[in-house]
Amino acid sequence: MSFPISRPRRLRKNEAFRSLVRETRLSPAGFVYPLFVCPGEGVRKEVRSMPGVFNLSVDEAVKEAQEVKSLGIPSVILFGLPESKDEQATGAWAEDGIVQQAARVIKREVPGLLLMGDVCLCEYMSHGHCGIVQKTATNRSVGAASTAQMSGVDEYEILNDESLDILAKTAVSQARAGMDIIAPSDMMDGRVAAIRDALDDEGFENIPILAYAAKFASGFYGPFREAADSAPAFGDRRSYQMDGANLREAMIEIELDLEEGADMIMVKPAMPYLDVISEARRRYDVPLAAYQVSGEYAMIKAAAQNNWIDHDRVMLESLQSIQRAGASIILTYFAKDVAKILG
């Protein structure tokens, strides 16, 4: 035969055909929308580098949560901007912490919306790191040497085991406040086991853990650090977040978190690590999440504002790529926009 029998274009000739045979279907039911909660009342402050994303006081966060639920999005993840910071991340685990306050009110005012609590310390530490810092040259903690003294100092260590107790206390305080899912994002070794034990000891054995299992030290986090006021005062986070070159190590991290009791796993960021998502989906039969992070969002927004790309088309394409790679849950700042398009 002079011409191939197979003509794939037969199924592409109009939108009805394309929709009928589409392999990847986005749905708001798989989205989680991030919220940044801050002190005050009536506060709705747009994040400069993230158009459409706001720092919200609790009352405004409730309104946002109500809209999220009305759009068919099942969950929000809460990040907090405390009134003050210290070297023990007190605001992270305080019973009246900003995230705990927001969780209680949203749980009451927006029943049925799943609340996810990000368990990390960077937003609450005066130095902006995700664990307790020790100055290695003199073997003193930052509690003894102030953050100002530490600035510019390269000889420091993020203490792993000493940070676990604070992370566990934070998880328990969030569970008491009404969080439905605990999501540790700190990348300390052993944190999932420590959190699982603490939750079980306090009677929260039915609260699942979504572990940021493969969280990479990425340049795509910049806008988030503005939104959450969480940039490190010195150094960077490469000693505990993953090296972006390592896929096999990511599988080890995921395996360890599952062994320690994680119910769900996450890869962060999403688009630069689609291969990691795909490999995780191939290996592990558990719910798999991916975080389309602030830098991914900001790039699309900035390019669209300059009329360099079609905003909605690229937004949808980016999310389809994440789902196609294997993620069944996507944390994304585009959740509301996409839900409105999908109807």
Rank of each mutant, 00 (worst) to 15 (best):
D197F: 11
E162Q: 14
R281N: 04
A94P: 02
A168V: 12
D154G: 08
L210W: 06
D161W: 03
E255T: 15
S218D: 04
T147K: 12
L199P: 02
A302C: 10
S318D: 07
V119N: 04
V21T: 15
P223E: 02
F17K: 14
L35S: 03
L26A: 10
N139Y: 06
G117L: 12
F3T: 11
F224M: 11
N55L: 10
K107L: 10
E83K: 15
A231M: 14
I254D: 00
S146G: 15
E249N: 09
L113A: 13
R22N: 13
A245E: 05
K63C: 07
F224W: 05
A103Y: 05
D96I: 10
V43H: 03
I5M: 06
G131T: 02
D243V: 09
A270K: 01
I265T: 02
R313V: 14
L247N: 05
S151T: 14
V58S: 08
I195P: 00
G244R: 08
F220H: 09
M188N: 02
S6F: 11
R140D: 06
I329M: 09
A214C: 10
P269E: 02
G203L: 15
G143Y: 03
R18W: 08
V267S: 00
L35H: 03
A217Q: 03
A217E: 02
S173E: 01
Q100A: 15
Y33A: 11
G42D: 02
D189V: 14
A303H: 05
K107A: 15
V105K: 11
M299K: 04
D236P: 10
P269N: 09
P39H: 10
H311A: 14
Y284L: 08
L342C: 08
V133Q: 01
Q100Y: 10
S151F: 04
F31K: 01
K169T: 07
L164E: 00
A304K: 03
F204V: 12
R283A: 01
I329H: 02
T138Y: 04
M150K: 03
V314W: 04
R196Q: 11
E67K: 11
P82E: 02
A339C: 13
R22Y: 06
K69A: 15
V37G: 06
L115P: 05
E64R: 11
D96S: 14
S75I: 04
S146K: 08
R237L: 09
S278C: 03
G30Q: 07
R324Y: 08
L199Q: 03
G203E: 04
A325Q: 01
F216E: 00
I277K: 00
D201P: 02
M264Y: 12
A217G: 12
D86E: 06
V43T: 07
A228C: 15
K340G: 10
G343H: 11
E15Q: 12
E123H: 11
P8H: 13
N246D: 14
A302T: 12
I309F: 07
P34I: 12
R248H: 12
F216P: 01
I330S: 05
L11V: 11
G261D: 05
V21Y: 15
A148Q: 09
L210I: 10
G326P: 05
Y297T: 04
S57L: 07
R282T: 00
Q320G: 13
A280Y: 00
